[in-house]
Design a protein around this nucleic acid. Sequence first.
RNA 1: GCGCCUGUAGCUCAGCUGGAUAGAGCAACUGCCUUCUAAGCAGUAGGUCAAAGGUUCGAAUCCUUUCAGGCGUACCA
Length: 588
Amino acid sequence: MYLEKELIASIQLFLDSKFNLKVLESEIKLLSTKKNFKGDLTFASFSLINKLRLKPEDISKILGDHLKENCDFILDYNIVGGFLNLIFKDSYLVNNLLKFDSTKTKSINNNSIVIIEFPSPNTNKPLHLGHLRNMFLGMSIGNILEYAGYKVKKVNLVNDRGIHICKSMVAYKKFGNNETPDSDKIKGDHFVGKYYVKFDQELKKELSDLNSKNLEDSKLIKEAKEMLLKWEEGDNDVRKLWVKMNDWVYKGFNETFKKLNIQIDKTYYESDTYLLGKEIIKEGLTKNIFYKKEDGSVWIDLSDVGLDDKLLLRADGTSVYITQDIGTADKRFEDFKFNKSIYIVGNEQDYHFKVLFSIMRKLGRAFANDMYHLSYGMVDLPSGKMKSREGTVVDADNLIDEMINTAKFHTNELGKIDNFSIEEARKLYEQIGIGALKYFLLKIDPKKRMLFDPKASIDFHGDTGPFIQYTYARIFNLLEKAKSLNIDYLNLKENLDIKIEESEREIILHINTFIKNLKEAINNYSPAFICHYVFNLSKLFNKLYGEKNFLKEKNESLKSFRLLLAYKVAELIKINLKLLGIECPNRM
RNA sequence: GCGCCUGUAGCUCAGCUGGAUAGAGCAACUGCCUUCUAAGCAGUAGGUCAAAGGUUCGAAUCCUUUCAGGCGUACCA
């Protein structure tokens, strides 16, 4: 049982027996005692003044006396301005640690099926910093939910068709000279992206030659549009080129995925799904949920839910973005019978998803209320917004390489791994560099817009991935030494007669919030909670590590206990980093 | 115009289902390696929580207004 729960139960019982007052567990709020006061947990008695008609000081006194008297785990209490600060007995905290089991999380949820959609890239250019935030969130949230017992399926909906792809294709046809990623020695997605940029450059040139700003005047645009039509007709040559170029892109993407350990269970392609949804338009018309305008276009009126009229089908019968999203939602439910479907998509599409979910609700889809848009904020640069036209986009692959190189630089500077093989060292650089990057992007509340400062991102001190990895590595080393000294810390019996330090109390109390924090992360779909938890855990441990020499402790019981504490901390660091998709090197 | 989001230390962020004297990291300054890994630890300094009202025993947190910034509001995706 967790510290808090046992205490809350005692308080509930007391209020019931003494005052005949029944309060819910959730109504009793325990705070962790502020640093400047003595105590482990604090009860704010103010919350009961109306119910008990007593002064907060009196409530605290009565409650404190009772708990001290009757709970064998409470050592003492003090009252400051109505706040009741409770102090646990050392023995209770020690026993609590001995019993702590980090694996009892699977029962938080029993096998609900959750679909997570990400990163859903376009196939006309390489991945960038925004995709990194997206992918790290997707993977981490997937890990977190899985750890809590959910059944998670990660799906990717690739935007592999449309005018933007045709632009790359036109440019390649005109200027490609049959080059390939292999012949150019460029990663496939970058190779194709090059032609997307080329198209834009040539277009600008063309328009300035024509002295026009009107895209209608451009032959290049016309060619791209024609190519799109041919694509839709299934023109052989166009399709062949399309397959070839997309394959290059996928090969490139997969390399990046692999490096970052991004795993996708199922990939949907828009070229397969873009026609979905048209049937549902008919359904909506029959049910009079949608309406047809004179020109034949189909709309839905969403004014009753505070939104506008929305086009669902063009006058020429072709579908728009939301049409296929409606279709895909149905298909996804057919495919997975999900209990929850999470779309990890940037917040510039908030309105789109509001509309989509409203439509599904109006169509009477029971799963409509289980669809959730995890709306994450944009990643800005110190120079402002990332803009592809101004060349300020941070490329994912470049950034990854930079991070790994920085890790290499620092590691070599510190000179701690001189006996590593080249392969071991390479692996370590990746673990540290990518760990730093993931942590940097995940530690901020997903909902919030964030600033990516390259200088700050490559800092490996303080609130960073490497700091936490380092804490783990030090404990690993410590435990290895303990092992070589034949110290048995894993089979300790309860009721050790030891006195623990303030730093140790803090660690045990923090360890106890693991499950609570995990639930918090789940409820908010936010890996940031995991980051904060594991950072604070590391910090608390490092404090103790600086204060005490573990192996030189004379009291054998205390020595073993401390090593067990270290062991549990390491275990939790590893678990939590894993939830973030970050690896834990044993040495660094 | 309308809708949504954001505003906390020099910088980046926690805290926001109301609780004590608002916290961390970075940057700055002081100390600590004859070593369980200094990618660490200890300390100093740094705040009108954008502003003004309101609710409350109590407000960074809830409500209203104002200001500033972002995003959206396409027969684009």
